[in-house]
Computed example of a mutant assay.
Amino acid sequence: MIDTESMATGFHAELPPWVWPFLDDYEAPLTSSAERMALVHALADRNWVAGNGGPFAAVVADTFTGEIVSVGVNVVLSSGLSSAHAEVTAISLAQAAVGSWDLAAVRPGLELVVNWRPCAMCFGAFLWSGVQKLVVAGDGPELEELTGFDEGPVVADWAEQLEQRGITVEQDVLREGAIATYTAYGQGRALVYNARRG
């Protein structure tokens, strides 16, 4: 007989309580990619210092109006869930807000703004979310070099793969802000929870 007494039947992740007061300092709507990325950088800077997870944040926004639909930060450490990356958190909260796993079916024209290209896991999560545009601060080896994180087997043509599926990609938005965050994180000797082992 399988021992079901010790098995979990659900899991939970939530944004840290500092996020809502933090957002009060921003005037809505955020009408440009740069404005939305500046918010992402500020959230990422605050998140790792607060100890919730890595130096990563994301927002789901309406590309045309600048409305912020959801906010996500990496909560791997505070939730104990390895999948609780900023992108997954932001996408999941947007899906909960609109009541559908397919965002485009209910709310077309949404974009995900995140402070680096998606890792191997988040690439898949984004691909099937219904988000129709991805805005990233950068792409390249700097993230792993500065932080020690293992981003997994990200394919070289990741942006082209998204474009082939009708998803627009905008790159290098406030790239230096992401580099500054990762540099501070790496020098801060914070816990890297998925560093390469062996």
Rank of each mutant, 00 (worst) to 15 (best):
V19K: 07
G10D: 15
V136G: 07
N74R: 01
L146E: 07
E144C: 13
M1R: 15
A180Q: 08
M1T: 09
A28K: 10
L43P: 09
E27H: 14
W116D: 03
A180T: 13
S129C: 08
L134F: 15
G140P: 06
E14N: 13
L77N: 02
G53P: 05
D25V: 11
D3Q: 06
G51S: 09
E160W: 01
G99T: 05
A137G: 14
A44H: 08
V131S: 09
R197H: 01
Y26I: 14
V59A: 04
P55H: 05
L162V: 05
T181G: 02
F123T: 02
G188P: 14
Y182D: 10
N74P: 01
F126E: 05
A34I: 06
A105N: 04
L39K: 06
A94P: 08
T9K: 14
V40F: 15
L110M: 04
S70V: 08
G188Q: 08
V40E: 10
E170K: 05
I68K: 02
G109M: 05
Q95E: 06
P153D: 13
Q132W: 06
F64A: 13
P141D: 13
P153F: 04
A8D: 11
F11R: 10
A105P: 03
E67R: 11
R46L: 06
V131Q: 10
D25T: 15
G152M: 14
V98L: 08
A34C: 03
W48G: 00
F64W: 00
P17T: 12
D45W: 10
L143T: 05
A34E: 15
T9C: 08
G130M: 11
V60G: 00
S33E: 12
G177M: 11
L77G: 00
V73C: 04
M7L: 15
P16M: 08
T9A: 12
A195N: 03
S78Q: 02
Y185R: 01
G80F: 06
D3P: 00
E145F: 04
D45Q: 13
A120M: 04
F149T: 02
V136W: 11
P17E: 14
A50F: 07
T183Q: 14
G148M: 04
L110A: 00
V71S: 01
A156V: 11
E163T: 12
P108C: 12
P55T: 05
D150S: 10
G130C: 09
P17A: 15
R107D: 01
T181E: 01
G99M: 07
E144W: 08
G186H: 02
A104T: 00
Y26F: 15
L43H: 09
